Computed example of a mutant assay.
Amino acid sequence: MSAAEPVRLSVVVPAFDEEAYLPATLASLARQHVPGGFEVVVVDNASTDGTAAVAARHGARVVREETPGVCAARQRGTEEARGAVVVSTDADTVHPDGWLARLAGHFDDDDVVAVAGPCRYLDPPWWARIFPTGWFAVISAVHALTGRVLYVTATNIAFRREGFPGYDTRLTQGGDEVDLLRRLRRRGRVVWDGGNPVLTSSRRMDQGLLHTLVVSYGYHYALNLALNRLRPDRVMHVAPVIREQQAATSRRLRRRWRVAVAVAVTAGLVLSRRRSGER
């Protein structure tokens, strides 16, 4: 699709060192069919691998954003988008056939400014199967009862580009999603489509339940959002990127810690028994 050719939708895909996951993401987008056409904009967020080359080979339009962080990348992609509707997704996410057309169909209603849907995880640990499913079920139920959307995930949301005030690039890891929903509500009706999920990588859960709840959601998400909303300058910085190598290192450290604890407990029991025998 040429740069001058008009499109109805622009799919924005922020990407940092995603050459391993990006091919599956772009292949799933290539299978989508939307009346009026669409473009795919991959925002290369200062990658050090072949992300940009992979995106270009798959026919995506590639733009570069040097500022680190997915929020800055999404902002740049939205600025570069040519479609009347901007669709946000992630570089480690695959999209079922018909996903994009279903999103686009909601915008036939002029009152709708945005539509969002859930995500499901690919090969997640047991707890990541239960908690997100329950959370998105609650969102669907509340929307059905009240018409209000409690939460959106930036890997599955579309909004009208006209008049969009932009992301708050001070925010990181999920804070941009909450702030985006707040800004979109001011413009009109936000719709939840619980029957139009995407499938995203579960690698962020590889460091375990405790790390996900306390560090990822508690520290980098909730605390970051609260502090950066209270102060005009960025208090906390972008959360570290989760990659397989980091997750593997974390798993090794946890195993070593468990072994050390087991050895210490065993040694303590042995010493205790010896002392008891000496008495």
Rank of each mutant, 00 (worst) to 15 (best):
P132D: 10
D123L: 03
W126T: 08
T146W: 00
R76L: 08
P125E: 08
D108P: 01
W135D: 09
D108V: 09
D110I: 01
A101D: 14
D111A: 15
A154D: 09
Y151P: 00
W99D: 12
A141T: 07
L103S: 10
D111L: 04
T89C: 14
G117C: 08
L100A: 12
L150F: 01
G147R: 05
G77K: 03
G98K: 12
S140N: 10
C119F: 12
A81S: 15
A91Y: 01
F107L: 10
D109A: 06
G98V: 13
A158F: 04
W99F: 12
G134D: 06
D97K: 09
P96T: 14
D111N: 10
N156Q: 11
A137G: 12
A144G: 08
A137C: 02
A144T: 08
A154I: 07
G147C: 03
I157R: 02
I139V: 15
G83C: 06
S140W: 01
A101K: 12
G117Q: 07
T93I: 10
V85M: 06
Y121F: 15
A141P: 00
A137E: 13
W127M: 05
V85I: 15
A101H: 12
G134N: 05
G105T: 13
L103N: 11
H106T: 04
I130P: 00
D90E: 15
V87H: 08
D97L: 09
I130R: 08
G98P: 08
I139D: 00
S140F: 00
G117K: 05
L100H: 14
E79N: 00
G134H: 01
R76C: 01
L103R: 15
D111E: 14
W99C: 13
D111C: 00
E79K: 02
G105I: 09
A91R: 00
A84S: 15
L150S: 03
L145C: 06
